[in-house]
């Protein structure tokens, strides 16, 4: 198993954290991982992305020219990555901000109104966890429990209320993705 995922969106949406939590949790699950953030001048342009590779054997390149999965939080990221994804790849799309569909018809697209769900939970900062929850539920690459444990270790010392919000975000995202899947079938 070797899966490459791109996380992309605006700076400030928690894109890099999302990727880091996945990579960290997969490491704790005993898998091989690499995490490669975009860096330098590109970062300061206001977009952020990172690539996470998860595998059960040694990983050659942390770069992905054709990702298996993409988690996209805004329209420019959707436009950028839909063209390069591998056929049959899964795209988790923040439908609160992206109101057009990818033109590729061979992708499995899950639309998650993440900003709306975050508003219901009362915190915009749960946006990335909602998307991550939907992502792990849909792809099975990790689990909500693993990610929650991973997150707990990463943000050691964060107060209980924030952790509870994050947990709710992950669960709501996961539930939404699973419901969507049932509907589409």
């Amino acid at each position: 198993m070797l899966k490459k995922t791109v996380f992309a969106g605006f700076g400030g949406q928690g894109v890099l954290m999302m990727g880091y939590v996945l990579a960290f949790s997969a490491m704790r699950d005993g898998l091989q991982v690499t995490y490669l953030p975009s860096y330098g001048a590109e970062v300061r342009g206001g977009t952020a992305n990172c690539t996470v590779v998860v595998s059960d054997e040694e990983i050659a390149s942390p770069v992905s020219s054709s990702p298996d999965f993409a988690v996209v939080l805004n329209r420019p990221s959707m436009m950028k990555y839909q063209g390069v994804m591998t056929s049959g790849g899964i795209m988790i799309l923040n439908s609160s901000l992206v109101d057009v569909d990818p033109s590729r018809k061979d992708l499995d697209v899950v639309k998650v109104p993440a900003n709306d769900i975050a508003a219901e939970l009362g915190s915009d900062r749960t946006l990335n966890m909602i998307m991550l929850g939907a992502f792990v539920a849909k792809t099975g690459i990790s689990s909500v429990d693993s990610v929650m444990n991973g997150l707990g270790e990463i943000v050691k010392g964060k107060n209980a209320r924030i952790m509870e919000l994050n947990r709710k975000g992950l669960e709501r995202g996961a539930a939404y993705a699973l419901r969507e899947q049932k509907v589409s079938r």
Binding site: A23, M27, V33, T34, Y35, L36, P37, P62, V63
Partner: peptide, 9 residues
């Protein structure tokens, strides 16, 4: 740059 930026366990 890649070795410098990449995270691995």
């Amino acid at each position: 740059g890649m070795m410098g930026q990449m995270m691995e366990p």
